[in-house]
Design a protein around this nucleic acid. Structure first.
Lengths: 225, 225
DNA sequence: TTCCGCAATCTTGTATGGTAGTTTTATGAT
DNA sequence: ATCATAAAACTACCATACAAGATTGCGGAA
């Protein structure tokens, strides 16, 4: 019974509920296949059904909920094929981004990237996996910004929620050391203004997730279609 | 005052309104900058505000409407930078698709593609621009299917609405003859299983739109940010 | 004329009641 | 005990009423 009150008039209750539910879903507090209802969530957050309903619509459009009219609303199970294609989309865009950045790094690019990698090493050394995850995201988003297509990253971000659910299931499994090493390879390619090498490094960096996916499906079969 | 009734229980009123409004926006019946209100649209379609409100939310999430809380809801003006980045996204994905198809065409690929091009030539010859547009879309979607990432096309489709509004403004300007010629180049590259050539052809095919965009901005400055 | 302030009237946001359809449960017949 | 049937208890959908902020326009004062 966590009552959520809007701080500013700019943020509506519906938006609050969206954020709260999305966090619950991505962190697996709400598990794939769980059945929820407007009244249920409304009572839980101390609001009426209306804002909850609108939150459901938003989350359904983002692929996290499945609204079955007149039947029920369920947390969508993770579609392995959907995850694969989300990754395909991300890879397609990020490869294009890394090409642009490597072809035309700009003055601030190298130092910015080096700084981010240093932060990641610090986070990894202190075992702060949450901060590491944040920095990892920032690493990729920064590349998008350097390529002048920050909006494109927002698109990736939307579809990344699907991948994040898988990632959450594999917490601790993925080696942050390895991710840092791969980031360094990418940074080196950018420093040498070598688009081809940067592209190859980015592909390798993203491809590693495929192994984790099949492994995770075996570990949590109920969460997948 | 067109009253819309749901035929099946699977399709809600809100979904109907979404479709009707999206068509109106893409075809410029509702122009960028137009102010609409829930009550207004509700009265126009003979439903209550509730389903209209939900339609607004969906369309806002697709980038066609801008909901200004407590103020109004307006048809989003076309963002030139947004169009450019939507094209960037589309190009990134389609290049990756065309690479895959060209690298591994599969048995049915060549004849399917050839058939589509023949249909397009027929449509162009008979001056049926609407059918030509439909076939053009089918051409690209078919490539996505052949690459095994039809879901990725759906993503492109969502963001393509922004591009479609521009395309609608340039009806008659764009030469279907030229598009067909470019499609033939792509088909030839696939037939020769030459990914590099296919990629170059696809990039050229998509790049041509840049000229049209700047031209269109000059012709309809009020519709752009 | 210009500017300030208030009120009428817009807008979207939220709450609630009722409706139609689905699922579950209970009940009775076989 | 098993199965068919009906009733009860859910669900999301829609309509309506009200609330709260934003805009507009009017009127009066400087």
């Amino acid at each position: 019974m966590a009552v959520i009150a809007p701080e500013t008039s700019e943020e509506t209750m519906a938006m609050r509920v969206v954020g709260a539910l999305r966090d619950d879903i991505v962190t697996m507090a709400l598990k794939p296949g769980d059945v929820i209802s407007e009244s249920d969530i409304a009572g839980r957050y101390g609001v009426s059904r209306q804002p909850v309903r609108e939150a459901f619509i938003r989350l359904a459009q983002q692929g996290l909920l499945l609204i079955r009219p007149k039947r029920a609303t369920v947390v969508k199970k993770i579609s392995p094929d959907g995850v694969r294609q989300s990754r395909f989309i991300r890879e397609s865009i990020e490869v294009e981004i890394i090409r642009r950045v490597a072809a035309n790094p700009g003055p601030e690019a190298n130092e910015t990237i080096a700084g981010l990698i240093a932060d990641q090493e610090a986070a990894s050394a202190s075992g702060d996996s949450r901060r590491f995850h944040t920095l990892d995201e920032l690493f990729h988003r920064t590349l998008a910004r350097l390529a002048g297509v920050e909006y494109a990253w927002q698109l990736i971000d939307d579809h990344k929620m699907q991948l994040d659910r898988v990632r959450y299931l594999t917490l601790g499994v993925s080696s942050s050391q390895r991710a840092i090493a791969e980031h360094k390879v990418i940074a080196a390619a950018i420093a040498k203004a070598d688009p081809a090498a940067a592209e190859a490094a980015m592909r390798a960096h993203l491809a590693r997730a495929e192994l984790l996916l099949t492994q995770t499906i075996n570990d949590f079969p109920d969460y997948f279609e």
